[in-house]
């Protein structure tokens, strides 16, 4: 098995796109950066709010900041030499090419199911060869063993596929973190496949 420097030598050449910087995207970004991924392209239009702090990789003194700006600051504290391309925009079919066409792997990290569907359909239609790691079903607590990855070709969907987040079944840090790290781990698996 390879050592960390050998792993990092490969990952440092890779670019990962992350669509959304909420509970999934912010935590996935931190894990990918810690693992040595060379470049992250992250897009989100939202600002940090008090309600985000139960699961997202932000801090209380960042409430009100644009998420991608706050996330850049936090990621640079992990690695001040990180190559980060942050976009404070709403991801939509008319900017996906511009944002993510250069990425080796794309991570779907939205909250709303309709946006998940939009990105998945766009990538499967326009970039069928590009690996896409999505998430669905992570609300509440417990049943961690139901969190898994379904693969179909280059599409990977992490989560339980059932538990929708809402007023009465909110997303909480442990399961959101598990799923965001299932995504990060799948990205590493894709990038390191057949390399050692």
């Amino acid at each position: 098995m390879p050592n960390f420097n050998q792993i990092r030598a490969i990952l440092s050449q890779k670019t990962i796109g992350i669509a959304g910087a909420g509970g999934l995207g912010s935590n996935c970004a931190a894990s990918l950066l810690r693992s040595g991924v060379g470049k992250l392209i992250i897009a989100d239009f939202d600002t940090v709010s008090d309600a985000n702090l139960n699961r997202q990789f932000y801090f209380h003194d960042q409430i009100g900041e644009i998420k991608v700006n706050a996330l850049r600051d936090n990621l640079l504290r992990i690695n001040p030499f990180a190559s980060l391309q942050m976009h404070a925009v709403k991801v939509a079919p008319d900017n996906i090419d511009f944002l993510f066409s250069t990425c080796d792997v794309i991570v779907e990290a939205f909250d709303a199911a309709s946006e998940k569907e939009m990105l998945i359909n766009y990538i499967l239609t326009n970039y069928p060869e590009k690996p896409l790691v999505a998430a669905s079903g992570l609300a509440g607590w417990g049943s961690a063993e139901s969190l898994r990855i379904i693969q179909s070709g280059n599409l990977y969907v992490c989560g339980d596929g059932e538990r929708e987040a809402g007023e009465t079944d909110p997303p909480l840090a442990p399961r959101v973190n598990i799923v965001s790290n299932l995504q990060a781990d799948k990205v590493l698996e894709i990038l390191l496949k057949d390399r050692f």
């Binding site: 909250d111 199911a113 669905s136 079903g137 379904i150 179909s152 989560g159 538990r163 997303p171 959101v176």
Partner: peptide, 10 residues
Amino acid sequence: LKIIHLVSGG
């Protein structure tokens, strides 16, 4: 055949 549910949360 794969029929994958997409539910909100993230």
